[in-house]
Amino acid sequence: MVWIEEEKFYAKGYNPGMRRILSEIGKRFSHFIEETGKLSIILIQAIKGIFQPPLRLQENLRQMEEVGANSLPVTIITGAFTGMVLALQSFVAFKRFNAESLVGTVVALSITRELGPVLTGLVVGARAGSSMAAELGTMRVTEQIDALSTLAVNPIEYLISPRLLAGFIMLPLLTILADMVGIIGGWFVSVCILGANSVVYIRRTFDLLEYQDIYSGLVKAAVFGFIISGVGCYEGFYAEGGAEGVGKATTGAVVKAYILIIISNYILTALFF
């Protein structure tokens, strides 16, 4: 049946291969539109849920602990070593034109404006985003999300709202910490290992650092936190197909969050200029 139809098209000059490609593109496009719609609905409802009673303080705190407190070690290590390597690299580079005294400035600016928020976002994305997708995905495939609905509790408000709020609040806080340990790490390498003068280094660090640098980094972090929770919850919430589906959702959450963070980072930086 099908090949007769294609033969007819072929005779008229249509290319059956082309037709298949076009229908595939169409399918992908409509799928994309559908996903975007579903994501928007979920996010709007989840944001509403943050402000509507019941406020579920305990659940909010639990998620903040999960996203924030439990990400402390990995954030501290990432921040400290990034600051240290930055000091080392820029020292080597600046030595070539005798500008070693600027190392402190470079470290402080790169960390607060760029590396603090972005690296924290990526690290927490991998940690908390994937765990949200896995947890919600498992809840979906074992019907726990349906069970919430049958107990007359809106699963979006119960599960997604606290996670969204936690990402939005905890990411900037973690970034402040990453900024601090990053700058300390840079100071440690410069002063204790490379032998720079501590007083000069500290003055250089804070002389050129403006509020705007820190604050733009924190706004970025809040956006990244929103992305991580939003994508992680969305992927998990609509997972289907058992263990395999949960695996796919988890991978999808990390990959999509990474891509969105990297792209939105550029856009936000451009906006702040």
Partner: peptide, 24 residues
């Protein structure tokens, strides 16, 4: 409305095939 739907659901209790207990 959605709100009314959740109101109606309070009349229900449901036992799931796999029990669907919240494992947290």
């Amino acid at each position: 409305s959605e709100k009314k739907l959740y109101e109606i659901r309070k009349k229900f209790g449901m036992l799931f095939q796999g029990a669907a207990l919240f494992d947290s």
